[in-house]
Amino acid sequence: MTARPARRARAAVAAGALTLVLALTGCAAEPPAPNPDPQASGPVLTEDQDTHVLGEVNAVLQAASESNDPAQLEPRLTGPALAIRKSQLEVAKERGNADLVTDIPGEYQQLIVPTNDTWPRTSFAITVQTEELQTPRLLALDQASPREPYKLWGWVQLASGITMPAFADAELGSENLAADDDTLLLSPQDAVNQYADVLTTGRGSAFKGTFEDDAFRQLLGNFAKTQKETLDQPNVDGTYTIKVTPTEGQDIKAVRTADGGAMVMAALTVTETMTAVEGAKLTPPTRSGKALLGDEEPTNKLVDGYSDMVALYVPPKDADAQVKLLGYSHIQTSVSTE
């Protein structure tokens, strides 16, 4: 996914300079408002406008990280991205460790611009791969209404070795799809629901054959295996369960691919529950979990909550292919001992 040199140069964002501008002005300048004329066709943002939007988002992310102030996120983040970033900043402040905050580069190798003349609508961007990141990030930005700015709605890290589907050039634009779109092998909503079931029940899922095996399923499966082995000790006699569901109240974002399929992004809520014999003390196995637990006394029950995002490729209708994971994020945002 290598961008043309001219486009990539336009898409580069100087994070330090943008942060300075934000500090001097007190608020980010709004990007030019897209023309809401329902007769318009083609992309609703030019590449330069989209790059400007991404620069504003990046400046807010940088400023909030430097100040550890989640309130600075509100002008340019929304939905799952806002909730997750707030949690990350709180954890980083508690632990004094900025490594727990997801790094989102400010340079982009591909822009995926919507053509829809209705709202809400979503644009996407794929970052460059840096020396610090194993894989690029895929970002989704949502515009809720004609005069609202685009805000970062979610992100995933692309899976290692994945081949991304092709999209229409940003100069032409790509169609946002409804959650119940019926031109695909599965509607975006059904794809997300079924994938959540596969993550929860694994090989016992009735939908396992619809999806390729992937790194996220392996990650959750390996963690579950480790926890079960730890809890299945004579002096612990514990249990482990996992439940994955589409996050309540969050829309699914979908965009048409060049082959007639779709890229689908969705928020998932993952809940892991561990119990042990009376008197045992279960402590969080992750750095984020320990920070979220804070000074609370451990008990024989531990409930870890994760706010996750996934991106799926759903083939076109009647295609002889499986749904494929493109990327995911797995971020712990809660801990409970009850």
Rank of each mutant, 00 (worst) to 15 (best):
R4E: 12
A12D: 10
A17E: 15
T19K: 01
L20Y: 12
D37V: 10
S41I: 15
P43M: 10
E47F: 05
E47W: 02
D48L: 08
D48M: 03
V57E: 03
N58L: 05
V60M: 04
A63N: 02
A71M: 12
R76C: 10
P80E: 13
A81R: 02
L82A: 13
L89G: 01
L89S: 06
A98S: 10
V101D: 05
T102Y: 04
P105T: 08
P105E: 12
Y108D: 15
I112Q: 01
P114K: 09
P114S: 14
S123F: 06
F124E: 00
V128N: 06
V128G: 01
V128E: 08
E132M: 02
T135N: 07
R137Y: 01
P146E: 08
P146V: 09
E148L: 04
E148S: 12
P149G: 14
Q157F: 11
I162P: 02
M164N: 14
D169K: 04
L172M: 09
E175A: 08
A178D: 14
D180T: 11
D180L: 11
D182H: 14
T183P: 04
Q189F: 05
Q194M: 13
V198T: 07
T201N: 15
S205V: 08
T210H: 04
D213K: 11
N222K: 13
K225A: 13
K228W: 05
E229K: 13
D232Q: 15
G238I: 12
G238A: 14
T241Y: 03
K243A: 07
V244N: 08
T245A: 06
I252A: 04
K253D: 13
V255Q: 04
A258R: 14
M263K: 03
A266Q: 01
L268F: 03
E272V: 13
T273V: 11
M274S: 12
A276R: 00
V277I: 05
E278M: 15
T283C: 04
G289A: 04
L292H: 08
E296V: 14
E297Q: 15
D304L: 07
Y306M: 08
V310Q: 05
V310G: 06
V314G: 03
P315A: 03
P316S: 14
K317S: 13
A321E: 06
V323K: 02
G327A: 06
S329Y: 00
I331R: 09
I331L: 12
E338Y: 08
